[in-house]
């Protein structure tokens, strides 16, 4: 652990160290998914790849959006756009806790001085039809990660079980770097000729998005887009598995899932605009969950989802 002796100096250094660490532990270091999502779990590399029997090991940063958490960049801890670091390994290795603790050391948490705790936290995503058991990981009383053994995703039992780690990067980095307000956090090395803080990069966008999310986003358009995404998802999944043009078996689980992600994000935007009542909320969540389940059903009919030609017989 020679690389860990030095404390990291910036947000990006913490990210880079996580990338290096998990690469060294055999994870494929993926890039963020190119769509708006509420959390790293939505990346198909987690949601879909946790299904089926194929082994998997991936790590990635995922920019995530939670429109209702926008505070115009003023709250020291709350953002409508933030980063999660996500690791998914299937099957979950027996030493996953040790691997995780190693990652904390890699980003500069001195295990001899801090109090790390695994505190019960059952994870459930009503929109994804998913649940798992695990913990919030506390460092000196602060939640720094979520640690989950997936039991069910999209209504399918997970066999084998995936181990999922999610780090809330801003909060974790603020703690390690000793920063009180997220906007003051050095994004790159403060010793460089052009030092940039988190605020230099995101203060303005937080304001812009908060205004749009809360007051301006056109709810009629959003409501229509939700319906369209839902319809498109169902249309994609209703296609025959065999493509008439190429003659190949092509189950379009990922394009359909993109529409599910889209519907989910639009729902979050509508929620931030305050146009969804308590009872409607449940109905919308149910609709997104129905899409997620159908996508999961489709994914397990693909090769990546464990389907084999002999299954067709």
């Amino acid at each position: 652990m020679s690389t860990t002796s030095q404390a990291p100096r910036s947000f990006q250094e913490i990210i880079l160290r996580l990338q290096t660490y998990w690469a060294s532990k055999g994870c494929a270091v993926l890039q963020p998914y190119d769509m708006e999502v509420g959390a790293g779990t939505f990346h198909p590399a987690t949601t879909l790849r946790s299904l089926g029997a194929q082994p998997w090991a991936a790590a990635y940063v995922q920019p995530s959006r939670r429109p209702t958490d926008g505070r115009y960049g003023e709250n020291p801890n709350r953002l409508q756009h933030y980063y999660q670091y996500q690791v998914l390994i299937k099957p979950s290795p027996p030493d996953l806790q040790e691997l995780y603790l190693g990652s904390l050391e890699a980003i500069g948490v001195d295990m001899a001085l801090h109090d790390i705790r695994f505190v019960e936290d059952d994870w459930e995503s009503p929109t994804l039809g998913a649940w798992g058991l695990g913990w919030e990981v506390w460092c000196d009383g602060m939640e720094v990660s979520q640690f989950t053994y997936f039991q069910q995703v999209g209504g399918h039992d997970c066999h084998p079980v995936s181990g999922e780690l999610t780090y809330g990067l801003e909060r974790l980095a603020m703690y390690i770097l000793g920063i009180d307000h997220v906007m003051d956090m050095p994004f790159n090395d403060p010793q460089t000729p052009i030092p940039l803080t988190y605020g230099d990069i995101f203060k303005q966008t937080e304001e812009e998005y908060a205004r749009w999310n809360f007051d301006v986003a056109n709810t009629d358009v959003l409501l229509r887009q939700f319906e369209e995404a839902e319809a498109e998802c169902e249309k994609i999944l209703s296609q025959a598995h065999d493509d008439p043009k190429t003659g190949k078996r092509i189950v379009m689980a990922h394009p359909a899932y993109d529409q599910c992600i889209k519907a989910s994000h639009i729902f979050n935007l509508l929620d931030a605009r305050g146009v969804i009542s308590v009872t409607e909320r449940q109905a919308y969540i149910g609709r997104v969950r129905a899409l997620a389940k159908q996508c999961a059903d489709a994914f397990v009919m693909t090769r990546a989802g464990g389907w084999r030609p002999e299954d067709a017989a």
Binding site: G134, Y149, P160, V161
Partner: peptide, 18 residues
Amino acid sequence: PKSMRWGTGSLKWVRPLQ
């Protein structure tokens, strides 16, 4: 009250039994 599977196994315990 709630138990789980882990890895490739089918055994259930509250969290992985080591």
